[in-house]
Design a binder for these strands. Structure first.
Lengths: 254, 254
DNA sequence: CGTAAAGCTTTACGTAACGTAAAGGTCAAT
DNA sequence: ATTGACCTTTACGTTACGTAAAGCTTTACG
């Protein structure tokens, strides 16, 4: 059986360019060249191509394969052993690369969480600063420096998780309060739940919670316009409503 | 601090060609070009080169590195992750290659031992054939077909190890016999040891050894010129000497 | 039988990241 | 002024083909 380039290429699953290249580098010459200059391959060439492709699949370079398939006295087993060593060395190199890449990734992620932490610390400090600016004077006058400093200290020592819960509580209080405000009853279940949430929120700031102080704080929300503004932001009257709810919740009235 | 190509190259441990190439592909352009057309690098370029080399050591291609170092908004962590995936894929490919190479080696070594086995079988058959040609007629006449066929059968069934021991014994008999022949006494210890070795050798051919047959065989070594030739090869008179030794060893005389 | 499509040829550029020349200008020192 | 070290640009070689161009041959079809 005889084949032209294309036929042999299809038979072996390679491109015709590949066969011409193999002819060029002398690893697989056609059996003969016909009158029109076409390359004609015979069964011996098919066999040799099979061998070439076999060694190529094992990752050999063509120059090596050339020696293997042209010199019948070539020590194939030794070539395979050496090739194996090369592959092992290459894999070792890859392992080192992978290890280093992973170390770098870990390092960068470390940096990332570090900056995240920094950001988080920044948030807390910013919050404290804002609080001081907005309510500091009034609050310090009312509760004394120690209480306020302790509260700020507690905030600073919060973990990210605690801090997030804290901020989440703030939101929950506002939404719950808004819902409760609609039916207008500070003694309703939902208003009382808002008061309860507010208590939980407070424990994030206060070392020791007591109902009296809670009720006092609620009163201040109404007395001090800055606090009133915070709760009345969405709906006017909310600060008063919260105070009433908390007074019912605590059983104290001042 | 400013550097020319060579200086920066030495500083960073790369070749000046590399720096020119990096300039060419736009990954690291010099800070300025002086009046003579020399590339002049500044500290910023040193930093960038460090970065380039860092990513190069992780196995990145220059095109990738170019993006990483030129675009400050580039997601390095993602690039590293993707790079890691590529490296892992490459290692997997290598693992397959290594596995296939090892399978091929095992297969070839299997073939090798197979051909070794074939060779070995060939040796045995050759030996039997030679024996038949040299001594067949005489022996079959004397001992009968059955005995000879059984002997050949026994030889064919030998393992390689047994066969090698068998051939080794042949040599040992000859050398021991040669030594014994020097002092000329077939009753001497060493001559008797030769006779004993000969008995062992015989048991490789005979199903059941007996002293009478052994003595008879010894006599034949002298009677038949072909056997005589084998033992007299080194020293004339050796066949007779062996016969005498065996006759003493067995206590039989025919 | 003419023509178009398919197949063949050679030549040659592109790939990745430089190494290695060659030919020629510049700088510092002798 | 010369020499040697250093600089420049240009360009080829490396691997195993892919891709394209320009041109010839074979095959198929109307």
């Amino acid at each position: 059986m005889e084949y032209t380039v294309q036929k042999l290429a299809q038979l072996a699953g390679v491109s015709s360019r590949t066969l011409r290249y193999y002819d060029e580098i002398g690893i697989l010459n056609p059996a003969r060249i016909n009158a029109s200059g076409y390359r004609i391959y015979g069964p011996a060439e098919v066999d040799r191509l099979q061998q070439i492709l076999f060694y190529k699949e094992l990752g050999f370079r063509l120059e090596q394969i050339k020696q293997i398939v042209t010199d019948p006295g070539f020590d194939r087993t030794r070539a395979l052993q050496e090739h194996r060593q090369q592959l092992l060395a290459e894999r070792k190199r890859l392992d080192v690369l992978i290890h280093n890449v992973e170390k770098t990734i870990a390092f960068m992620e470390g940096k990332q969480t570090m900056t995240d932490k920094d950001k988080f610390e920044g948030f807390k400090e910013q919050l404290i600063e804002e609080n001081e600016k907005k309510y500091g004077e009034e609050i310090r006058a009312k509760y004394g420096d120690e209480v306020v400093d302790r509260s700020n200290e507690k905030l600073k020592n919060m973990t990210q998780e605690q801090f997030e819960k804290f901020k989440h509580l703030e939101k929950e209080i506002k939404t719950t309060l808004a819902k409760a405000f609609k039916n207008g009853d500070p003694a309703s279940d939902i208003a009382q739940r808002a008061a309860h949430l507010h208590k939980q929120w407070l424990t994030h700031c206060w070392d020791n919670y007591n109902k009296e102080a809670h009720a006092g704080l609620a009163q201040m929300y109404v007395d001090d316009p800055r606090f009133t503004a915070y709760y009345d932001e969405e709906q006017p009257g909310m600060a008063k409503f919260l105070r009433d709810a908390i007074h019912i919740y605590t059983g104290f009235k001042r």
